[in-house]
Amino acid sequence: MATQFITEKRTGAEGVSRLAARGVTVGYGGRAVIDGLDVEIPPGVVTTIIGPNGCGKSTLLRTLTRLLRPTGGTVVLDGEDIAKLRTRDVAKKLGLLPQAPVAPEGLTVGDLVARGRHPHQSWLRQWSSDDAGVVERALTMTGVADLADRPVDSLSGGQRQRVWISMTLAQGTDLLLLDEPTTYLDLAHAIDVLDLVDDLHESGCTVVMVLHDLNLAARYSDNLIVMRAGQILAQGHPRDVITAELLHEAFGLQAAVIDDPVGDRPLIVPIGRTHVRIEPVNDAPVK
């Protein structure tokens, strides 16, 4: 059963995107990584951005969260130009988990998660029992309530990712952007974190992720955005997007795409030069 989300959903009209990039151009040092890109993030689903290294995945995510300012085009959040919103107001609407975040040495889990309430604090509104309740629910949702008094730097990689997601939830937003949340995690811990992401989605959260593992992206996503060279090559449900032809075009990867034996999504089987039995692969249902 999905856990009740810690804040009211703000998806607006059914099917209307809350977050979009319109004609966005952005880059580094005068070099455009993304040029004139348009994308709509569908509400209420898990969207995962995939693509080869250097294609602009993290650049797009950082631009959607206003960490990068585009040189052209507009990012729209709830119908407004995100560049014109106050930082505090943006933080109340969306939460970001960056790549490999680092907590100050000795900071406890409870103190880190409580920092998610900072956008809601002001001279007139100090810490309250309501804030404490949000933090407690965020810790419970991510399964780390029993770690509240532990230093963050004493936790395993998987535990730390759960704690950082908990801090993001404490912001009180149902729009979460996660930049490679499974980086440096072994497969078991990666599955654990992605199961948590799925729980958050089931509770009413819209999630946008960047992932490198294509099979995990297909398994845990309702919507895939496939990028190459700063542009969107394809977008849609994994069953509609993942084909052998697209994998070759996007990644230069030779692979068979078969039905996942334990799910309803496609499964990618890479074909290398060695240890490959061509006949069984060809006999499998290829999409």
Rank of each mutant, 00 (worst) to 15 (best):
92 K>H: 06
171 Q>E: 03
8 E>K: 15
275 H>G: 07
208 V>G: 01
191 I>H: 10
72 G>F: 00
32 A>F: 03
109 V>L: 01
28 Y>T: 06
180 E>M: 12
18 R>H: 12
9 K>G: 15
43 P>E: 06
131 D>M: 02
280 P>D: 07
87 T>L: 13
57 K>F: 04
192 D>Y: 03
268 I>Q: 00
110 G>K: 00
182 T>P: 06
99 Q>M: 03
53 N>F: 07
55 C>M: 13
81 D>P: 03
106 G>P: 02
59 T>N: 01
168 T>M: 14
191 I>V: 08
105 E>H: 09
170 A>E: 02
287 K>I: 08
9 K>T: 13
53 N>I: 03
15 G>S: 11
208 V>E: 01
27 G>D: 02
6 I>A: 13
50 I>M: 04
187 L>M: 05
142 T>M: 01
111 D>N: 07
198 D>L: 12
220 Y>E: 09
64 L>E: 03
269 V>W: 05
125 R>E: 02
286 V>Y: 11
240 D>Q: 12
44 G>Q: 09
168 T>N: 08
6 I>W: 07
7 T>S: 14
217 A>D: 04
163 V>K: 03
201 H>A: 06
129 S>G: 13
136 E>P: 01
251 F>V: 01
31 R>H: 13
84 K>N: 08
276 V>M: 06
254 Q>F: 04
227 M>K: 05
225 I>N: 04
258 I>P: 02
31 R>M: 04
114 A>V: 07
79 G>H: 03
24 V>L: 05
120 H>A: 08
57 K>T: 04
70 P>V: 12
3 T>H: 10
49 I>F: 05
207 V>R: 06
166 S>C: 10
229 A>Q: 08
38 D>R: 04
258 I>D: 12
235 Q>N: 15
129 S>K: 14
53 N>K: 14
65 T>H: 06
94 L>K: 03
207 V>D: 01
115 R>W: 11
172 G>R: 05
82 I>F: 06
49 I>D: 04
68 L>T: 10
38 D>M: 13
256 A>F: 15
130 D>L: 15
133 G>A: 15
78 D>C: 11
201 H>F: 02
274 T>M: 00
117 R>Q: 11
61 L>W: 12
179 D>C: 08
91 A>R: 10
206 T>D: 04
111 D>T: 12
155 L>I: 15
69 R>K: 15
205 C>Y: 11
3 T>C: 10
183 T>A: 15
91 A>F: 06
120 H>M: 08
126 Q>W: 01
